[in-house]
């Protein structure tokens, strides 16, 4: 029984982690029809920012997390303006360009701070939450309320703000949206800014419990792409549901079998699911 409860808790944390990163990726795809493979590197920059500010310069952890989120969000806006705008709507071109960005960002970070040993980020919250025989490190626990706050705030923004409604309109039909006077360029910049900020936030929060290296983005981006595609590319709610599915699938299979089998099962599940429902969980089928 304890193992079942522990697995439920582990799965929830893993799902929240995937969801924060994948929702940002999904937003970018939905609004801009742009595939940003460098999203994992934005996550890495978030972690490096916390390493620099919190671990090296001893700034307060949450201040470092806030700065990392804003910094990566601004980086996303700059990248949209300079790199993605000319290829907006061309999924393949944006994908190839973003793969190039992956290498550039990795090499830049490696040159700046070296590639050797992982960058140690001490845990802010020592110890673990112990409830009904389930123990989860406090540093992992904080990802859950953070995800809830981010998603509530994000959905509020989408539903109730002018720019949120504009983003939804552009995601549905960018040409029609522009005919109604919506500034599509601005929407794209906001989408990539928010999406990147989410990746930066995830990296920043997870820095104390992940291995901070220039290549850390690589380890999450594949799973996040799977989550976005299965969720129904560009569909935020679908992405959150898919993050829960894959978070639990990985955790349960890793617990019962091992993490190698978990990787295989996740990929087989994705292929099987997409062959039955190509549009993903909540995506619309093409007419």
């Amino acid at each position: 029984m304890e193992l079942i409860l522990q697995t439920i808790a582990n799965g929830l944390i893993a799902s929240a982690f995937y969801a924060i990163i994948a929702v940002g990726l999904s937003l970018t795809f939905g609004v801009m029809n742009t595939v940003n493979y460098a999203h994992g590197e934005f996550y890495m920059i978030g972690a490096y920012t916390v390493w620099q500010l919190y671990a090296i310069h001893h700034w307060p952890f949450f201040l470092a997390v806030g700065i990392a989120t804003i910094l990566v969000g601004l980086l996303g806006i700059i990248v949209e303006r300079i790199i993605f705008r000319p290829v907006r709507g061309k999924a393949l071109s944006s994908f190839i360009i973003s793969v190039g960005m992956v290498f550039i960002i990795q090499v830049f970070v490696a040159r700046m701070w070296g590639v050797g040993h992982v960058k140690p980020v001490p845990a802010v919250f020592k110890g673990a939450l112990d409830i009904f025989g389930v123990t989860i490190g406090w540093q992992r626990v904080i990802i859950l309320p953070s995800a809830v706050i981010v998603f509530l705030g994000f959905f509020y923004f989408l539903r109730n703000s002018k720019w949120g409604r504009a983003l939804r309109a552009v995601a549905l039909d960018s040409e029609a949206a522009s005919l109604y006077g919506i500034n599509v360029n601005k929407c794209a910049a906001i989408a990539l800014g928010i999406g990147s900020a989410m990746a930066g936030l995830a990296g920043a929060l997870m820095a104390p419990i992940m291995s901070v290296t220039p290549y850390m983005g690589h380890s999450v981006i594949w799973t996040c792409f799977v989550v976005v595609i299965v969720g129904g590319a560009g569909n935020i709610k679908g992405t959150i549901i898919a993050a829960l599915v894959f978070g639990y699938l990985n955790t349960i299979v890793s617990t019962i079998f091992d993490s190698t089998v978990a990787s295989i099962v996740s990929s087989v599940f994705m292929l099987t699911f997409l062959s039955i429902r190509p549009q993903g969980i909540l995506g619309y089928a093409e007419k």
Binding site: L3, Q6, T7, N10, I13, A14, F17, I136, R140, M210, S219, V220, N250, T251, I252, S254, T255, I256, D258, S259, T260, A262, S263
Partner: peptide
């Protein structure tokens, strides 16, 4: 465990 493992919590739980 896989060389690509990022989450070690389930392994230790098991």
């Amino acid at each position: 465990y896989s060389t690509e493992t990022t989450d070690f919590a389930p392994i230790i739980s098991a």
